[in-house]
Design a protein around this nucleic acid. Sequence first.
DNA 1: TTGCTTTCTTAACAAATGTCATCGTCCTGG
DNA 2: CCAGGACGATGACATTTGTTAAGAAAGCAA
Lengths: 190, 190
Amino acid sequence: MFEVFKAYVLKHALISDDEFALIEAASRIKKLRKKQYLLQEGDVCRDHSFILSGLLRTYSVDDKGNEHIIRFATKDWWISDRESLLTGLPSKFNIDAIEDSTVLLWSAAQMEDLMDKLPGFSKMINGILNKSFITSQNRIHEAISSTAEEKYHNFITRYPDFALRVPQSMIASYLGIAPETLSRLRGKKH
Amino acid sequence: MFEVFKAYVLKHALISDDEFALIEAASRIKKLRKKQYLLQEGDVCRDHSFILSGLLRTYSVDDKGNEHIIRFATKDWWISDRESLLTGLPSKFNIDAIEDSTVLLWSAAQMEDLMDKLPGFSKMINGILNKSFITSQNRIHEAISSTAEEKYHNFITRYPDFALRVPQSMIASYLGIAPETLSRLRGKKH
DNA sequence: TTGCTTTCTTAACAAATGTCATCGTCCTGG
DNA sequence: CCAGGACGATGACATTTGTTAAGAAAGCAA
């Protein structure tokens, strides 16, 4: 399974076999069944996770019991609560598996160590962080400037795969609208 | 004016005087009058900017001429369009000065060079990027899970300074609501 | 299969927000 | 100093969205 990760890294950086050996030695593998938590609200997030297979989501639950999905993540994506990871404080978010999944884990300390020892790896990780930030900015832009219909259209255009693998109520949650509203939008002619 | 930047950096990293000399040599200073653009939609963003004084905003303008403010930024904050900076493609956003401002600039190439040569500086910049990403995630969370009233309340709590220096119509734009809606929310008792 | 759960749709109504227009105040540039 | 513009408040009305409830269709487990 580590091969999936290796193939991913080689798309972004030049890493030698010796370096991969270090990275692999510091990693753990974890299998998750559907609905299983990778991180639960109130716990401290201790690991960076890379998804080898499956589909996960990050979400919060409010006072009324409503779930709010911050993001979905699938093969070749990273997932964690960076805030909890950085501060060591309990997480506000849950991460769980929407489908049976497999992830690679590195503790914060291990990741820090790897990044100090392997500049190429560090540069890659920070490049990914930069792209993640850009994606976030664009999502914020969309959230404040688009109608619900536009948001939905953009979602299925940008993530056609998720649209097939995820129930519509979760898409509504991701977009910040009620599931009934999404159902109505879909019913309308364009 | 470079002293403002130096004081900021020393709060986050250990940088020697020699290193500061390098950083300063690569920088340019720019003064902006109120309403002056730092970046205009359609232009390529070429610089990382650090704000020495004043207040700026990043925003887009839609088909109907409505402005949507992605973020405000003031002294000791960085501002740029990271997407345009990374890709070299024209920016979707405008950045302009809400107050007379002064900024320090580094071109993308200069910044890259500095980060390669100065690991401590690089680590600091990436640490800031990490925090920016966390802030973005929290804003996304708020956008999809809070009412307009909660968003406004959070804004004035988190950024009391901006609430005083920025017209309410801009706050409304930042929150993604019509200025009339914000005016009504304010009119209501808490 | 059968029964249970999940998912999605639809309807009726309430609440929130947007749009358009008007008005008064402040303030600032000429 | 004055006039025009920016800013904010408010009202009337339209539109969108949330809420509650009910039911149909599909999937899943015993």
